[in-house]
Nucleic acid binder design. Sequence first.
DNA 1: GGTACAAAGTGAACAGTGTTCACTTAATGA
DNA 2: TCATTAAGTGAACACTGTTCACTTTGTACC
Lengths: 234, 234
Amino acid sequence: MDSDYPLEGSPADRRRQKVRESILAAAERVFACEGENGLSIRRLAEEIDYSPSAIYKYFGSKEELLEELKEAFFERLLVAVDRVQKSGRSFLDCSAGCLKAYVETATARPHHYAAAFSSIPAQDEQAPRTRTWEDFMNSQKGRAFHVLIDMVQQGKANGTFDPALDPIIAAKSVWASCHGLALLLIHLPAFETVQPDGISTSREASVDFHIQTILRGLRAPAAPTPSSICGTGT
Amino acid sequence: MDSDYPLEGSPADRRRQKVRESILAAAERVFACEGENGLSIRRLAEEIDYSPSAIYKYFGSKEELLEELKEAFFERLLVAVDRVQKSGRSFLDCSAGCLKAYVETATARPHHYAAAFSSIPAQDEQAPRTRTWEDFMNSQKGRAFHVLIDMVQQGKANGTFDPALDPIIAAKSVWASCHGLALLLIHLPAFETVQPDGISTSREASVDFHIQTILRGLRAPAAPTPSSICGTGT
DNA sequence: GGTACAAAGTGAACAGTGTTCACTTAATGA
DNA sequence: TCATTAAGTGAACACTGTTCACTTTGTACC
């Protein structure tokens, strides 16, 4: 979105953009190392040799600044998924690759990913109930979610997945599973290590198993044509 | 653990215990409504008509106080799981029931559940690597995790699950899936609502589908006995 | 060039946070 | 009754996000 080559806008605009980006870069740096607690406005100001109040000329609040960092996760994710999808693999390989890309993109920047899902909405606040679908689908989150819906629909069409699947419900389920794995890897150091004896399974084996299990759960129940009777949820 | 009937210890001890519990009760109350941000030591002190510094006679730090609230989730979970397991259902029904209990226990107190998985360990800090297994397994988290391991092993033994499963890896996978669903329900109000048109699927249907998909992913690959396959929840 | 105006940047201050510590008050055991 | 210990307090410290009157800087126009 933001151009890399500074050839547009007035000199003042370009300068402003530069400072803005230096703030974000500093925030990125500190946040990656020390998380939300280590990232204070004063610390940030010190890092870029400005006064704390200067930052408020660029971002309305700390929350707003963080929002920008959070959005970046879904941008990176969409890029990674795109790369997988263009690699010309088979459907199942491609699907597994996308899910793996999700987990890896998430765990590569633990603090960013955790922060992206950190806000808990107040229970009574349910006013913006109407036309949430379009709003959601136009956000980065929504676009990433749509990749999953497409995946399910494609799998149904080519006979890999159960034709009775509701694409949205199934996509939600897949998302939840990946989300959970990413977060457990991030939050629970024991999760990787935990193993009764020295024989600790590699992280990658766990991730691969998880993804294969997710996909197996969506598979078509039996042979699609002649003797396909025993299917459960048809 | 903490006795309800105040018949042990000296009067002073009992008094102390009472104050301690009133602090925890107030914390519980405030935390449930307003989350970690709304819970300050001063607010807590005001709530129980003590001075802020008094609280430090009972808890070493705010962190320590919160730790106690977080542990409570796993206690509630173990109680709920125990109830399901004693209900005498079939293996698959019981398993599904336990997973559902997990999601429901988690979403019933969103702030508590989210907080229980909120800390992100520093990347370099990997000193306590040795004998983590026993430590972990003796914690409440570990005991809850063990329920899942047992579930997988039982499923392998009775032919429901793939006999090739590694119980620990499979249990991790199941945990991750439930964890992810619970957190998405907590953090993303859109997750429940999201649906292209007014036809919004109920939350329960999503949860049930997710759990069935998890269990389906662990199923034995082919028919274990001649004609005993077609029923879903035996 | 000089000038008016807006933007960028600053320092001090406010209200809030977790935490500490010297202190007073209350309860206990000898 | 008195000494010892625990419980409880108020003021302070170092920090936080945020605001606001202020100065400096840059830009556009005459």
